[in-house]
């Protein structure tokens, strides 16, 4: 173990009421295999639960997965809470069913990348590596 080797910690969170965790879990596994520490929150987390988990776990990255269509309501709430808690330096990325036209406003509110259906997991891993180093 070397001091310089910082472990990248990622919170994989599922806000929204849907139970579609296939994507979240496939990504979680891929991130684990890439050597990251992945903290999975489980289904149906409120914005407050997501933000507080991110704080306590002191993660470098938050990956939000949502397929319910409620992202335009829940994501701004999460971003607001992160700011309030002083952890808006965390890299926030998202995936799921997100219409093209929502991507711009989401990026504007600080969600750095949105990975839609069909994104190779390697792309997500590389993106995180690039941003966190």
């Amino acid at each position: 173990m070397t001091e310089s080797e910082r472990k990248i910690r990622v919170l994989v969170a599922k806000p929204g009421l849907d139970g579609h965790d296939r994507g979240a879990k496939v990504v979680a596994r891929a991130l684990r295999d890439a050597g990251f520490e992945v903290i999975y929150t489980g289904l149906r987390q409120t914005p407050e639960q997501v933000a507080e988990a991110a704080l306590q776990e002191d993660v470098d990255v938050i990956g939000l997965s949502i397929l319910s269509g409620a992202h335009m309501r829940l994501f701004p709430e999460i971003m607001k809470l992160l700011k309030e808690k002083g952890i808006d330096d965390v890299l926030v990325i998202a995936g799921g069913i997100i219409p093209e036209e929502d991507i711009k406003p989401l990026k504007k509110m600080g969600i750095k990348a949105i990975f839609g259906p069909g994104t190779p997991t390697t792309e997500i891993v590389e993106y995180i590596r690039k941003k966190i180093r």
Binding site: L17, D18, G69
Partner: peptide, 9 residues
């Protein structure tokens, strides 16, 4: 918990 989900799916 229904926040943002009403009539959506």
């Amino acid at each position: 918990m229904a926040t943002g989900e009403i009539g959506v799916c």
